[in-house]
Computed example of a mutant assay.
Amino acid sequence: MTSDKLYNRIGQFLEDHRLVPDPAHYAFVHAILTQPNSSLAKAAAELIDGGVRLHQDDIQRLGGPAAGQRPMTREEPVAPSEPPPRDHLVDPAETRTDALAEQTQGHVEALSAMIRTIHADTSAFSANLERSAAEIRRGEPIGLATLAKLTGEMLERIHDSERRLEKATAEADALREKLVEARASARRDPLTGLANRLAFNESIGQCFQAPQSCCLALCDVDRFKRINDQHGHAVGDRVLNAIGQILSEEGHGHLVCRHGGEEFAILMTGVTMAQAHKLIDRAREAVREKRLRVRETGESIGEVTFSAGLTGFRPDDTHETVFARADALLYRAKNEGRNRICRD
């Protein structure tokens, strides 16, 4: 691909997805166009399949080469597009985890090669000793210098292997720590620090085996697009972070996660429906009463609220049925005027 052609393709991609041509976006698009077989490019292709426009949240989840700088999209209103299927959203730590897996595989292969070398050295030394012993049994003259040389060479190889094994052990320990960190990061939303959809999916499965009663609440920020359109996505992110903190404080002891976009999910274990409703309503009031302002200008954002759908787990429920029921209750709360909770 010529430089001019690549430049034009990057520009067209940025225009199609309404992305500002800043260095972060340029680097991201350059990476997926020049390395079409990479995990990043494949994840991006799957996400935009069917004409879906990339949003800044999607780019952050994909974790491109400029993941340290969160890309910004244009702030002018755009025509709504069909949201991508939930299964297509990629966790932001997935790319890093894949890299660590490859690094671990390489470390295992290096260890295997080292062990084969040690085995070969030991076998060679054993063969030389047996040959010397046979010469002694036959009465053939053999000098101490020969035995000392063989022993010295083997000792040097042993010491070298010990140094290499010590280094490999230290690398393995470092890798183990990175993998533990990556596993935790893969289950954490990078914006709010809350649990993410992966953690939610793992935890909701455990609820079906829990002896106590469980409830699920889906909370969605009301008219969040207005906040983004009027104040920008950076302000919208701060609003999400503030709401996430309130939900985390009010839902202490329960799993509070950012399920995606402006939607939060709360899994409550060992509570009755009345207790769960009280918890969510307390959080709803705390959000409504919080007075948020634009940090740079002091401008008031206005009243921020969320709507929620609350349901309890039933004996015949599955992940899909309990989530669909909470989702339907959430939409009912939206249709009935927002800033309210609808429950079973």
Rank of each mutant, 00 (worst) to 15 (best):
T2R: 11
S3D: 12
L6D: 12
L6R: 13
R9Y: 01
R9K: 08
I10Y: 08
I10A: 04
E15I: 04
D16A: 03
D16C: 01
P23F: 03
Y26C: 03
V29F: 01
A31E: 15
L33H: 12
P36D: 15
N37A: 13
L40R: 09
K42Y: 01
D49R: 09
H55N: 04
L62P: 12
G68A: 10
G68V: 05
P77S: 01
A79R: 11
A79Y: 08
P80I: 02
E82Y: 05
P83G: 08
E94G: 02
T95L: 14
R96A: 11
T97Y: 07
V108Q: 00
V108P: 00
M114T: 10
T117H: 12
I118V: 13
H119L: 05
S126I: 00
S126Q: 04
N128W: 00
L129V: 13
S132C: 08
A145V: 14
A145G: 14
A145E: 15
E153S: 07
S161K: 11
R164P: 07
L165E: 12
T169F: 12
E171K: 13
L175K: 05
E177W: 13
V180D: 12
E181Y: 04
A184P: 00
S185Q: 10
S185G: 01
S185F: 04
S185A: 11
S185K: 09
A186H: 05
R188I: 08
L191C: 07
T192A: 01
N201Y: 07
F208T: 11
P211W: 06
K225I: 00
K225H: 03
D229S: 06
Q230I: 02
G232M: 02
V235K: 08
D237W: 01
D237P: 02
A242E: 15
E249M: 06
E249G: 07
R258Y: 05
H259C: 10
E262S: 12
E263P: 09
I266S: 04
I266N: 06
L267M: 14
L267N: 13
G270N: 11
V271F: 12
A274I: 05
E289D: 15
L292Y: 06
V294W: 02
E299W: 01
F306G: 10
F313L: 10
R314V: 11
P315C: 06
P315Q: 11
P315I: 09
P315Y: 11
D316M: 10
D317T: 07
T318R: 09
T318A: 04
E320T: 00
F323N: 01
N335M: 08
N339F: 03
R343W: 11
